[in-house]
């Protein structure tokens, strides 16, 4: 892994929500693929944090990643907005997983 080069500017010790872990993992994997050097990302993250000191850490992390990917021509900002809208639409049109307050399966005790 990338341990010593992780930009640890007040990095929280634990992830507060699943999306934080996903944002973290994305950047780690993109770096491992050789798409950018850690110092490049670290510089972006540092700049983002200093520009928005009240912003949650992993929001800054995500923003830094998006900026870096767009600047490197790996992603277009318009395509990203379209994809994000698609996610919102998908969630809005979602199925409904019906709440069940009883077990969905029971394996009874066996005589013996």
């Amino acid at each position: 892994m990338t341990g010593p080069l992780l930009p640890d500017l007040d990095r929280p010790k634990a992830f507060a929500a699943p999306w934080e872990a996903q944002a973290f993992a994305l950047v780690v994997k993109l770096h491992e693929r050789g798409l950018f050097e850690w110092p490049e990302f670290a510089a972006r993250l540092s700049a983002e944090i200093h520009a928005h000191p009240d912003q949650p850490y992993y929001v800054s992390w995500h923003e830094a990643a998006v900026e870096l990917l767009v600047d490197k021509g790996l992603m277009e900002a318009g395509a990203f907005l379209d994809q994000a809208r698609a996610v919102v639409r998908f969630r809005a049109s979602d199925h409904h997983h019906v709440a069940r307050l009883t077990p969905i399966a029971v394996d009874p005790a066996r005589a013996g």
Binding site: W19, V59, L81, A84, V88
Partner: peptide, 26 residues
Amino acid sequence: LMSIADIEISARVKALEELLTQKGLV
């Protein structure tokens, strides 16, 4: 949702993952 800032962060992260997956980058 006129701009990306209008979209909640978990959906933005999800979208980033989906887009990069489509591109074969992750």
